[in-house]
């Protein structure tokens, strides 16, 4: 099982996300994370999906997407020629004993403190997936109360855009 990131440009209409995710459900692919947002044009939305699966099935999936009239273009994104970012909000328990250690770890990861009380600290970290995973791992030494990740946003490097992709 490999991990794949694909970006899909779709018509900005109700029900389109459902049509796209339905393709994953049919093939028993589990979506690891998913982001959707409007694009430079209000007519289109961009969906970025990270998922696990077999390569042959992944290729099939990409071909099948072109059968959806609402899909404009699809691009598989590879780490070597794309940039990807994710944002993490993490709430850890605050106490006089751990306060300093949390702060130094946060500094090392350039985490921003966005909420602070005697009982808890909420920090924000941005970076690629690995960096976020690493920070969560470090925070496991303390008491993680809850976390929320945005999921990946990703663009190709250079002047290539998803609009240039055709079937």
């Amino acid at each position: 099982m490999e991990r794949y990131t694909i970006a899909i440009l779709v018509n900005n209409q109700s029900g389109v996300l459902n049509r796209v995710t339905s393709m994953f459900r049919r093939r028993q692919f589990n979506i690891a994370c998913l982001t959707v947002s409007e694009t430079e044009s209000p007519d289109y939305s961009r969906i970025t999906i990270l998922f696990e699966g077999e390569e042959s099935k992944k290729n099939q999936l990409i071909n099948q997407f072109y059968k959806l009239p609402d899909v404009i273009s699809i691009k598989e994104l590879h780490a070597k020629d794309s940039v990807s970012r994710e944002l993490l909000l993490i709430k850890v328990a605050n106490s006089p004993e751990t306060r300093e250690e949390i702060r130094s770890a946060a500094e090392a990861f350039e985490a921003k403190t966005v909420d602070y009380t005697r009982e808890s600290i909420v920090m924000q970290v941005t970076g690629d997936r690995k960096r976020i995973d690493d920070f969560i791992n470090i925070m496991r030494d303390f008491t993680i109360m809850e976390i929320c990740r945005t999921g990946l946003v990703a663009l190709q490097c250079g002047d290539a855009t998803i609009r240039q992709e055709t079937n």
Binding site: N63, Y66, N167
Partner: peptide, 17 residues
């Protein structure tokens, strides 16, 4: 005419959509 059918179940040497 359907790209998704090419190479779907067989190892096609030449795929012409």
């Amino acid at each position: 005419i359907e790209g998704a059918e090419l190479g779907k179940t067989t190892n096609d040497a030449h795929m012409l959509r």
